[in-house]
């Protein structure tokens, strides 16, 4: 049951409850980095990796350290865990692989302030997930975010050549495309629901 539950959560996090298009998290980097497919893939991969692992670490920290007396400290602790994790990953990648560092390295500092990462940890606490479910939720949310940003980058590369009203250039048109994408993702709802 737990495994099936985790599997359902994984798929729901990608499609029906896409972290970006239904919960609006991670918009800042979504708008500023979605200009090219190549960079979007890099950032998406980095976000997925960090999200999956920090949600697992934060689950352990929350349930073994903070419950029951220090629950109100969770904001500070989660932020510190995420920042420390990103820093460590950056150092490891730098040592181990130049190729990987060139691909992901520049995106890692950006991730600390990506609200989607903190958001996933907070959702996990509010929805009372088990350890496996938290990991599945983190991984699924990361993949869902990656899917959305790559799709957006593809559309923006095409749209570059089209005439756009002056006031809508940049952020405006990106938001409108995101709105249409959100409408398309509503089509998935009803398949699986998590609450």
């Amino acid at each position: 049951m737990t495994f099936l539950g985790a599997f359902a959560i994984f798929f729901a996090a990608i499609f029906t409850n896409n972290i970006l298009l239904t919960n609006y998290l991670g918009m800042c980097s979504f708008i500023s980095v979605s200009r090219e497919i190549k960079t979007s893939v890099g950032l998406g991969a980095a976000v997925t990796f960090v999200m999956a692992l920090t949600s697992a670490i934060n689950w352990a920290v929350y349930h073994y350290l903070l419950v029951p007396h220090l629950v109100y400290l969770r904001f500070i602790v989660f932020i510190v865990v995420i920042a420390a994790f990103v820093q460590i990953v950056e150092m490891i990648i730098e040592r181990v692989s130049d190729v990987l560092y060139a691909a992901l390295g520049i995106f890692l500092p950006l991730i600390t302030v990506n609200c989607a990462i903190l958001g996933v940890s907070l959702f996990m606490v509010i929805r009372d997930y088990t350890f496996i479910q938290s990991f599945a939720f983190g991984l699924g949310s990361g993949l869902g975010w990656m899917l959305a940003i790559i799709a957006m980058a593809g559309i923006r590369q095409k749209i570059n050549k089209s005439p756009i009203p002056k006031g809508l250039e940049g952020a405006g048109i990106t938001l409108i495309i995101a709105g249409i994408m959100a409408m398309a993702f509503v089509g998935f709802s009803g398949m699986i629901a998590i609450g």
Partner: peptide, 19 residues
């Protein structure tokens, strides 16, 4: 009140204010 409404509204607002 759904997600897409928020995106469209903000885009419109940006458009008007930038104008």
């Amino acid at each position: 009140v759904m997600a897409s409404g928020a995106f469209f509204m903000l885009a419109l607002f940006i458009w008007i204010m930038k104008g």
